Simulated assay, not measured.
Amino acid sequence: MIVDDSFFSRTLIAETLRLGGCEVVGEAESFDTLLETYDNCQPDIVTMDIVMPGADGFECSRALLLNDPSAKIILVSSMKDEETEAEAKRIGIAGYIQKPVDGELLINIIKNILSPDSLYEQLIELGLETFNEALSQNITRMSKTPVSFVPMNTFETQYVSQGITTVIGIIGRHSGSMIMDLSVETADKMVEALLRRPSKSREEVLAMVAELSNIVAGIACSILNKKDKAYSLRVSPPSVFYSTETEITSPNLKINASYAQTTFGPIFLGIGFKKGATSWI
């Protein structure tokens, strides 16, 4: 169901929804016909403009949620700022997209509101494979040799580091972490391949590992974002731990992991995500 006082906007949104495989079952141009139209057509999703004569989109949304607390509303408006987003969250609106409407993004938001676990499950399915691909690209550039991966079916409760561990936080619709671990010897060989000389200090080696991890995570997140804009993934700065006694644990995330077999030595790579909020604002 589309709620918008502009006939042209309703037509444009309706065509966008139809092209995305949705059925438009009702339209309303103001509060006057909102509740009656909603009760008659019983839509799965309501798109709601903010600026309308009489009662605005926020007032209409409050009334609609009072009428049906399970109503799923997506604000579709040219207005979008911190204040309107905060108000939408307070009311209980499910999603928010700015005009002009990105059709693909709108359809993805609708799908994920109606099937809240599907995006997470897709991310779990694609995550490790995508991060392996990103690591492989970078190692192959350095060594001009292919990289093979040995999967670890599950990440155990703890893992003892080979010597250098990098942890990168992943921020997005579903947050997570990437763990990369390798020996000092492997890292030394990689530095020598990149700089065409032996490393001069341990700091130089640790800096290389941090940068490699950052690049791998960034490339992987970019690949995933291209597959689905709704992921909205980005990376946080890496944290590097240098000790052969380091134990890696992951109490809050299920980590999918693999070993990369490279000419420099084995590299452990683990990736995990947790379910995010259900609100698409």
Rank of each mutant, 00 (worst) to 15 (best):
N225A: 08
D188H: 10
K275R: 12
N138T: 10
T37R: 03
I219E: 05
E156N: 13
W280V: 13
E29Y: 07
S78N: 10
P53W: 07
A134G: 11
D117T: 15
Q122T: 15
G127Y: 01
S243D: 15
M79W: 04
I50S: 00
S9N: 13
L34E: 09
I74Q: 01
V51W: 04
A277C: 10
K200Y: 09
V51Q: 10
L123R: 00
E133M: 04
F58C: 08
F131S: 03
N225G: 08
V216I: 15
L66A: 14
V101F: 05
E83R: 05
A220K: 00
S183H: 10
V205N: 02
A187M: 08
R10T: 11
I74V: 14
L105T: 12
R202W: 04
T145V: 09
R62A: 00
R197P: 14
K200R: 13
F8V: 15
R10Y: 05
T263Y: 03
E156P: 13
R90E: 14
E121K: 03
S136P: 08
D228M: 05
R234F: 11
I2R: 01
A134E: 07
I113R: 00
G218S: 10
V184W: 09
P198R: 01
L35Y: 03
G57L: 01
N153D: 14
S213F: 02
T165Q: 03
V191C: 08
I13D: 01
V76F: 01
E121R: 06
M48A: 04
G21M: 04
E247G: 09
P116C: 04
T33K: 05
Y159E: 01
V46T: 13
G176P: 07
G103Q: 08
Q158V: 09
F268V: 07
Q261G: 05
K229Y: 10
R18F: 03
R234S: 15
K274E: 15
M48G: 04
V209L: 07
M79D: 12
S222V: 09
E125V: 07
E203V: 12
G169K: 06
E133K: 06
N252Q: 13
T37E: 13
F131T: 14
T278A: 13
G272Q: 00
S115Q: 12
I223Q: 08
G95S: 07
E129R: 08
A88H: 00
E15W: 04
V24G: 06
P69E: 11
L75A: 02
L114G: 08
E104K: 06
V240M: 02
I45N: 03
M178Q: 03
V240P: 05
L12H: 06
T33V: 15
K229F: 09
